[in-house]
């Protein structure tokens, strides 16, 4: 069973969101997602300053086998990206909720976060997807 921290929010497209409480959030992919994708070999991140729309493609993670789109769980402006992933994409596999974060967004609409699932709901969602 994959790790689902209770302090995070989750999107159906398997991204997590950590609310920093200062109008910004960190975004990454869940442990379940990295498990399903397998070893990552390349991560393409948005540009700092780019404006993201909730639900739209904004990054790509590539495993040995395939490239998968990442969707932004919130709308807002990218204020930081995790540059260490350029040389060490495997960090996402090793620490999906910590050092393997993807980007940080200054959110334009706080209510985007309320639309996301909590840990229990996400656990149930993964379960329902498996059947």
């Amino acid at each position: 069973m994959s790790n689902i921290p209770t302090e995070l929010k989750y999107a159906k497209s398997h991204e997590w969101v950590r609310d920093e409480g200062d109008g910004t959030v960190f975004v990454g992919i869940t442990d379940h997602a990295q498990e399903q994708l397998g070893d990552l070999v390349f991560v393409e991140l948005p540009e700092v300053g780019e404006t993201l729309t909730a639900g739209s493609e904004c990054a790509v993670v590539e495993s040995v086998k395939a490239a998968s789109d990442i969707y932004s769980p919130v709308s807002g402006e990218v204020v930081a990206v995790n540059q260490t992933l350029e040389d060490a994409p495997e960090t996402v596999n090793e620490d999906a909720y910590g050092d393997g974060w993807l980007f940080r967004v200054e959110i334009s609409d706080e209510s985007d976060i309320d639309e996301l699932m909590d840990a229990d709901a996400y656990a149930g969602f993964i379960e329902s997807e498996a059947h």
Partner: peptide, 8 residues
């Protein structure tokens, strides 16, 4: 994220 391998 998208494009999980399709279920069998």
């Amino acid at each position: 994220m998208s494009e999980f391998a399709p279920p069998v």
